[in-house]
Deep mutational scan, measured.
Amino acid sequence: TTIHVGDLTLKYDNPKKAYEIAKKLAKKYNLTVTIKNGKITVT
């Protein structure tokens, strides 16, 4: 599972963990989490 945050690309083997991290990042920086085709993007 890949999380895209701006220019950063973070890879995680565990999709659930990746989603949790994405949610935390989104909350911290007041951003939105988008999931599309298995890719998690924080914008």
Rank of each mutant, 00 (worst) to 15 (best):
T1D: 05
T1P: 05
T1I: 14
T1E: 03
T1M: 13
T2C: 10
T2K: 06
T2R: 07
T2H: 08
T2N: 05
I3Y: 00
H4L: 13
H4I: 14
H4P: 01
V5E: 02
V5Y: 08
V5D: 02
V5L: 14
V5K: 03
G6P: 03
G6A: 04
G6F: 08
D7L: 06
D7I: 10
D7R: 12
D7S: 13
L8D: 03
L8F: 11
L8W: 09
L8A: 03
L8K: 06
L8E: 02
L8M: 06
T9P: 03
T9A: 10
T9C: 14
T9V: 15
T9H: 12
L10M: 06
L10Q: 03
L10D: 04
K11M: 15
K11D: 12
K11I: 15
Y12G: 05
Y12S: 05
Y12W: 03
D13T: 06
D13F: 06
D13S: 07
D13C: 13
N14E: 07
N14P: 04
N14H: 06
N14V: 05
N14F: 05
N14C: 04
N14Q: 06
P15S: 11
P15T: 11
P15W: 15
K16Y: 11
K16C: 08
K16A: 12
K16F: 11
K16E: 15
K16L: 12
K17P: 01
K17V: 14
K17G: 04
K17W: 12
K17L: 15
K17E: 13
K17D: 13
A18F: 04
A18T: 02
A18N: 01
Y19G: 04
Y19S: 07
Y19A: 08
Y19R: 08
Y19L: 15
Y19E: 09
E20I: 11
E20M: 11
E20W: 12
E20S: 08
I21G: 04
I21H: 06
I21W: 10
I21N: 05
I21V: 14
A22Y: 03
A22Q: 00
A22E: 00
K23H: 13
K23T: 13
K23Q: 13
K24M: 13
K24P: 00
K24R: 12
L25T: 01
L25M: 08
L25D: 00
A26P: 01
K27W: 06
K27Q: 10
K28L: 12
K28E: 09
K28N: 06
K28H: 09
K28F: 12
Y29E: 02
Y29P: 01
Y29N: 03
N30V: 03
N30W: 05
N30M: 07
N30G: 14
L31E: 01
L31Q: 01
L31I: 04
T32W: 04
T32C: 07
V33F: 05
T34Q: 12
T34R: 09
T34A: 09
T34F: 07
T34V: 13
I35A: 04
K36Q: 14
K36D: 13
K36A: 14
K36S: 14
K36M: 13
K36E: 14
K36V: 14
N37H: 11
N37T: 07
N37E: 13
N37V: 09
N37F: 10
G38K: 06
G38S: 10
G38F: 05
K39I: 15
K39N: 14
K39G: 09
I40P: 00
I40M: 06
I40D: 01
T41W: 15
T41Q: 08
V42N: 00
V42D: 00
V42K: 00
V42I: 13
V42C: 03
V42W: 02
T43H: 13
T43M: 13
